[in-house]
Write a protein that binds this DNA or RNA. Structure first.
Lengths: 140, 140
DNA sequence: TATTTTTTGTTTCAAATGAAACTAAATGTC
DNA sequence: GACATTTAGTTTCATTTGAAACAAAAAATA
């Protein structure tokens, strides 16, 4: 058995390589880590949502989300308001500073992705998307 | 921008899902974690090698390898001998207990992989392998 | 040969992680 | 309404992680 051929291993190495590249880049350019980046994107698309909803959308651990939100509030990228119908929960949304950050980060992220994808043919890109969708189905 | 469509994100989620499944399984069935499993496979294919060589083959961090080897020696799966030509290094190899473990684990790993792959068509499997190879080339 | 530089591997330390316990509020049940 | 259960989010704690500093040996250079 070759470890190098073992699918889970290959995927792990690939994903780590790509994530590491992004992580360093975002840390350097914008001072945000992967967790913060993920939560920011979700808030960009979903204004005024709770930590619970972010957990559903991101599949991240709730402890991690709690801490990430706290850090983003401290960095003054988010407004935090108590949920009108549930006193346990808080609503979060990007403030002007947060939106400003995202207007800088998103094109950068898309460029990074494009940089990766442009090295694939049209056919390969289609295959990749098909496989990712299929795996998501397979793994529930 | 949809986070869900973002390639690095998709890959990360997929890889974590698959790795988590394996990790739990190996921990339960054999009491070994992912790091230990990777090092064991490498030693299975490459008897009598040093930590440095394992680092090259696995792409894992050297601190992690150092600790993993220590734990595997403690669990009595490996023989550790001082390198004949380099007093800084040690050679590692599976001992009988280690080989016995691997004879149990490897079929199990292959079954897990097969379980995943059999849900793909012949074409999809080929596409997957092609893409993984291609990505490896792209990312050096 | 002596001295500097590089290499191999380990240890230290601080940060990240997540399971489990917890608080507080909402919901369900009687 | 009173009590039990569930839910949202936080804190605690023990573990994992890897960067940086380190020790010891090998290799390079003088």
């Amino acid at each position: 058995m070759e470890l190098n051929d073992f699918l889970p291993y290959q995927l792990s190495v690939l994903s780590l390589k790509i994530s590491k590249g992004i992580a360093e880049h975002y840390q350097d350019q914008f001072g945000i880590n992967i967790s913060q980046w993920r939560v920011l994107v979700i808030l960009y698309k979903n204004p005024d949502i709770t930590a619970k909803r972010i957990a559903q959308l991101s599949q991240m651990d709730k402890v991690r989300i709690s801490r990430t939100l706290k850090s983003l509030v401290q960095k003054k990228y988010l407004n935090e308001t108590t949920h009108p119908l549930d006193a346990r929960a808080k609503n979060y949304e990007l403030n002007e500073r947060g939106r400003y950050l995202m207007r800088a980060v998103i094109p950068d992220a898309l460029r990074y992705e494009e940089e990766l994808l442009k090295k694939l043919s049209e056919q390969e890109r289609a295959d990749l998307q098909h496989l990712l969708t299929k795996f998501n189905k397979i793994l529930e």
